[in-house]
Design a binder for these strands. Structure first.
Lengths: 154, 154
DNA sequence: CCTTGACCTCAAGCTAGGTTTAGAAATTAC
DNA sequence: GTAATTTCTAAACCTAGCTTGAGGTCAAGG
């Protein structure tokens, strides 16, 4: 019966995505359906998983191009195996750990700034233009110059 | 000399922000300059710190409306003291911890999915529509229905 | 066969967070 | 006092990630 692929509507139902979103992902190269004789898109059942991966990665804050990069690790020409998915998920997890660590570093720097009570130190790690905080010595951009704690208005 | 407030350009120089960005923040209610006799914006020196807080909070991924919410905790009518800033930073930190924890929970759920190798369990915590993952029992949206691991193409 | 619903393409619209541009007025520098 | 710089407003434009709408086609059911 359904041996000739899923319609876009069926895929939308299975994933919870809007039809328009799936079409958009196609324009972004994240999914590549084929067409039936009438020109309608047809999807592999494995694409359900592919779209689900996209949704999950978005939850983690990755952009569509980044997600496309992850998906390139999947084999072309055959249906990905569970092992393929496990491999891509591990690579994904590494990026994720990186992201969490960066946030934690930023938070710890914030703690330091709460400690000093100023939020305005020129050498405050939070003002480093790189997300890699606390890279002291590497020409920290002088974002804050206001260091008088008790100025008055008017 | 400069006792009547900072011009927008001076503030831009002190913070590293673009002049246009500062004006935009004003339209979003994040900063409220007064006007001089010629109609030009004038800013308090304390606004340097305010803008820096905005920049930091953005690094952490908060939206401008969220940041506006944090800033409402600052006193109106007087220049915020270091203590004021320490207080707001602590509230901010709580949101931040929450955000990190949510990410970690998601990551741990991903680990579970790597473990099961499927990425397609209907009860997988990652498919919960809420960012609060792992809320089993609360009618998890059935996002994935594909559970045959070895289907073939064509 | 004929209707209805799903699907097609293309273009425009939307939110967030801004930047750019244009023309005019204010301020600063010499 | 003039020239250069800055600032002003308003509107248009930009990217990401979509949604909506118009107008037309395809597919499935009775």
């Amino acid at each position: 019966m359904a041996s000739s692929g899923l319609s876009i509507g069926a895929l939308a139902d299975r994933t919870g995505l809007a039809v328009s979103a799936i079409r958009y992902y196609e324009t972004q190269g994240l999914i590549e359906p084929w067409r039936n004789s009438g020109g309608q898109r047809r999807f592999h059942r494995a694409d359900i998983r592919r779209l689900s991966f996209i949704m999950i990665a978005q939850k983690f804050g990755f952009s569509l191009p980044e997600i496309g990069g992850f998906l390139k690790a999947l084999p072309g020409g055959r249906t990905p195996t569970p092992q393929d998915w496990a491999r891509i998920s591990e690579g994904f997890r590494a990026h994720l750990d990186q992201r969490i660590e960066t946030l934690q570093q930023l938070r710890d720097n914030l703690d330091g700034c709460i400690g000093c009570g100023c939020l305005s130190l020129p050498n405050c790690a939070l003002y480093n233009p790189q997300d890699q905080a606390a890279k002291k010595g590497k020409g920290p951009r002088f974002l804050m110059g206001d260091h008088s704690e008790t100025e008055n208005r008017s």
